[in-house]
Amino acid sequence: MPTSLNSPTPSLFDAVQRDGFCFVTADTMQPLLQSAGGLSDWTHFAESWNRLGPDPYLAAKGRFRRRRHATFTARANGTIELAPHQPHFQSLQYNALQGDIERWFEPIEPAMANGASLRTILTFCNGFFSSLAFGISQWHVEVHQFRIEANTGEAGEPTPEGSHRDGVDFVLVLLVDRHNIASGTTSIHAPDGKPLGDFTLTRPLDSALIHDPRVFHGVTAVTPLAAGEEAHRDVLVVTFRAKP
C-alpha cells in the first residue's frame, strides 16, 4: 500500500487528476512533508546548494548552471533505496537541446542523499505519486539539485530547452532558496500550447506537482534585482518513472 498522507492531500490529488498539475504553497507543503518525516537537517540541506558543481553540458553551449544528481529506487510499499551513481539520460523527443546523450553530473553528497530532508521529500513523493498511479509497484527516481545563476546583463535560464516534458510520469519541483532575483515564473501548457496556468515559487518549500505525460512546463529567465550582487535560484527537482 502507498504511504498514507494527511489532509489536505485529497484536494491536491483532485487538482493533479483534473488539471495535470498543482501549485502548493510552503504553508501547505511543510505540514505535508512533516507528516511523512522530519526536516531536521534542512539548514544543512539548503546550504549544500553552495557546493554544486558546474553543468558542463550547458557550459559548452554558452549557458551556465550548477547541479548534482542522484538516482533512487522506490517501491509503493514505502521502501526507498539509493542506487549506484549513473548518468541522466533523456531522448531528443523530450530534450531537443541535450537529448540522446548520457550526462554525468557530480553525485549528491552522501550526507544529503541519506539525510532527513531528502528522505522525507522522497517519502512524500512516493506516497503521493503511488496513490495517483495504482498498479505501479516500483519507481525509477531521479533527484536533481539545480542552482541557476544570473548576472547583470546575462539572465539565468532555468529551462533553456523551453516549455517541455521530462519523459517521466510525475515531477516535483520544490524551491529551496531564491536570492536577489526577479521573475522565474513557472508556466504550464497543454500539448497544443494552450496556457493552463502560471505561478512563481517565492518561498522555500513552495512546490509544483506535475503529471508529466499530460502537460508541458517551463520557467521564465531570472535576472538580478540588484546589479553587482550574487543572484541565484535554487530548486530541487524529483522525477518518478514507473519501472518495468
Rank of each mutant, 00 (worst) to 15 (best):
P110R: 02
A226K: 06
A226C: 11
Q138K: 09
I101L: 14
T79V: 14
F134T: 12
Q138D: 10
V168D: 14
Q138C: 08
N151D: 12
M112Y: 12
Q93P: 12
H211S: 12
T220R: 09
Q90D: 15
I80Q: 08
L209A: 15
A133H: 08
D192N: 14
Q138I: 11
I148K: 00
I108V: 14
L132C: 07
P158M: 01
D198V: 04
T185I: 10
L209I: 15
H88V: 13
A133N: 05
A221R: 06
I181S: 08
A208F: 02
H211M: 04
V171F: 05
A182I: 05
G153S: 01
L196H: 04
G135V: 05
Q98Y: 08
A155L: 09
P107M: 08
G156S: 00
R103Q: 13
N180D: 04
R103P: 11
G167D: 04
T123M: 07
G156L: 01
T186V: 10
I80C: 13
A226F: 02
N126M: 04
A83V: 02
V173Y: 02
L122N: 03
I80H: 10
G135T: 09
A182K: 04
Q98L: 13
L174I: 09
V222N: 01
L172E: 11
P107T: 10
G184A: 10
L92I: 01
Y94T: 00
T223E: 14
A208L: 00
V176R: 03
T186N: 08
G156F: 08
F124A: 09
G78V: 00
R178V: 04
K194Q: 15
F124D: 02
V219I: 15
L122F: 00
Q93I: 15
L175R: 08
I121D: 02
H85W: 02
H140A: 13
A83C: 11
L172N: 06
G127T: 07
E142H: 13
D100W: 03
V219G: 12
I136D: 05
D169C: 03
G167L: 03
G193I: 09
H88S: 14
P191V: 05
I108T: 01
K194M: 15
N151P: 03
L82E: 09
D198H: 13
S207E: 11
D177W: 04
E142I: 02
F199G: 11
D166T: 14
R203F: 03
A83T: 02
I80N: 08
D206M: 06
E157D: 01
S130I: 10
M112N: 14
G193Y: 09
A133Q: 03
D169F: 01
A226V: 13
S130C: 09
N180W: 09
G197E: 08
G135L: 09
T220W: 04
T123C: 01
V219M: 15
P224A: 10
I108M: 11
S183D: 15
F199I: 10
R165F: 12
G184E: 13
F124R: 07
T152S: 05
R165E: 03
L92C: 05
A83F: 13
T223D: 12
I181D: 11
